[in-house]
Amino acid sequence: MKNLNLILAGVFFTLAASFGGLLLSGQVQLGQLHRAPAEEGGPLFPAKEPGLAIQGREVYLSLGCVTCHTQQVRPAGQGNDIARGWASRPSVARDYVLQSQVLLGNRRLGPDLVNYGARVKSDDEVHTHLRTSMPGSVMPAYGFLYTQSKDGSFRPTEDAVALVAYLKSLKIDYSSPEAKLKQ
């Protein structure tokens, strides 16, 4: 191995092998995945996101939420995500087919959000969580998402409204051909 082109060709081979083995074969398996009905003839899942939620994803991205929050729930044998009540089934590849940028995340300084929309009760609950810092939480208050009017009440900005719509759209409360909900 004394020739530059031979070394380069060898390194290219190693990279191309992993590219073909992981990414091309992954593309063959996952690249054409589409929405599927939970039962025969039913509506297709995952449901299309409302327009406001798509705007909210931009806010989510722009604030860097993905640094601390994941959007994936591991199966029961791998970690205790389901036992913690984050979702009642593991997330599967089909859940992400409509997302323009898949934000699986790699770190959990806060809870997982893939099923957050099914866990919260109301918009107000999310707004309160964003506007104020919860006791014992490392998540700061995102006060700049709200404006205070003269009578002391808080009004959410457009970003906050979109972000909440996005967070509430995050749900895996439906059955997928790969992961049935346990009734």
Binding site: A17, S18, G21, L22, G26, Q72, P75, A93, N106
Partner: peptide, 22 residues
Amino acid sequence: LFLFASWTGPATLLGGPIPVWL
């Protein structure tokens, strides 16, 4: 190193929503 390191990517996604064989 060059042969194996570039295959280790999916090992950082264990338990994630990607096919188990990967």
